[in-house]
């Protein structure tokens, strides 16, 4: 490792520690705000470090800088303005929206690296498996969270939405996801495998969230939040970046526990809530 890489790795490690301690502090009302600020500090450190790395290495092209800085600037402005202006009652749908774009960003990394690989070349499993998982999970959380946002905001009916043939379509989406996985993992890279994986995961996310009632939405948002964490962790495998793996896995696991607690607080089980989504006819999803 070069001196810069060693230094960068240590900074990423410190920022990962900030996330863990941040989550730890957020468990109690007294220290929660400090915890969030600490995890934000870790985030700023990671962003500054990657910026320094890119500048020193000088590999990034001018077009890349423009795309990156324009995306960051617009995203930060949009995110901060929304987060400050939104009425307190509308916060859950905003969190769901932020979660959707997080999943979208993770999926975009998978899409990028799959397309970046030489067309027609056979991919190593070390690369193709995380790419597949990243795109599928990211795609499901992207469309699922957007529907959840719409339901919480009232743009989409809060009632469970079912239509004739939805279970069949669900089954087709699952088969298409598995099929796209076989293609992406087992065969040389071709762009339409990617399209199949993307479409199937987006449709599945939609079908998973539509039949769930508005009252259960916070639990679903929390579950999708944990999913996004996993998608980010797999994106970390794809680009071989440990801070993404640590933070993603941390959110994936902590988010799962949180989801179980939220469901318990509502006297519901997660399986029961999702049963609406997967067409379990027996349970009343209210």
């Amino acid at each position: 490792m070069s001196t810069l890489q060693t230094f960068a790795s240590l900074i990423y490690l410190i920022s990962a520690v900030c996330y863990v301690i941040g989550v730890h502090l957020m468990r109690s009302p007294k220290t929660a705000r400090k915890g969030n600020l600490l995890s934000g500090l870790g985030m700023i450190m990671a962003v500054i470090m990657i910026t320094i790395e890119l500048i020193v290495e000088g590999k990034i092209m001018i077009g890349g800088w423009i795309a990156l800085l324009a995306g960051l600037a617009l995203g930060i402005i949009y995110g901060v303005v929304k987060a400050r202006k939104v009425p307190m009652t509308d916060v859950p749908q905003l969190v769901s929206l932020f979660n959707a774009v997080g999943g979208g960003a993770a999926a975009a990394i998978g899409v990028f690296d799959y397309l970046y690989a030489d067309p027609g070349s056979s991919l190593s499993l070390v690369f193709s498996i995380p790419v597949f998982l990243d795109i599928i999970i990211g795609g499901v959380t992207f469309s699922g969270s957007l529907i959840a946002t719409g339901k919480l905001a009232g743009h989409v009916s809060g009632k469970p939405i079912k239509f004739p043939g939805d279970r069949l379509l669900n089954l087709i989406a699952i088969i298409a996801i598995i099929f796209s996985g076989v293609l992406i993992i087992g065969f040389p890279a071709t762009w339409w495998y990617l399209v199949l994986a993307l479409v199937a995961s987006l449709v599945f996310g939609l079908l998973m969230t539509l039949p769930i009632g508005g009252a259960d939405m916070p639990v679903v948002v929390s579950l999708l939040n944990a999913f996004t964490g996993l998608a980010v962790a797999f994106a970390g495998f794809v680009i071989d970046n440990q801070v993404l793996i640590i933070a993603g896995a941390l959110v994936g696991a902590a988010g799962t526990i949180l989801t179980l607690q939220m469901a318990e607080a509502m006297n519901r089980s997660v399986a029961n809530i999702l049963a609406g989504g997967f067409g379990g006819g027996d349970s009343d999803t209210g």
Binding site: G22, M43, I50, G102, P218, N225, T228, G229, L244, V251
Partner: peptide
């Protein structure tokens, strides 16, 4: 939930890498 959601925003580091 919102705090955990912010932490997976670390995906922004990945955006630098792909850029």
């Amino acid at each position: 939930m919102s705090g955990a959601n912010a932490i997976h925003g670390v995906v922004v580091v990945g955006a630098f890498v792909v850029a």
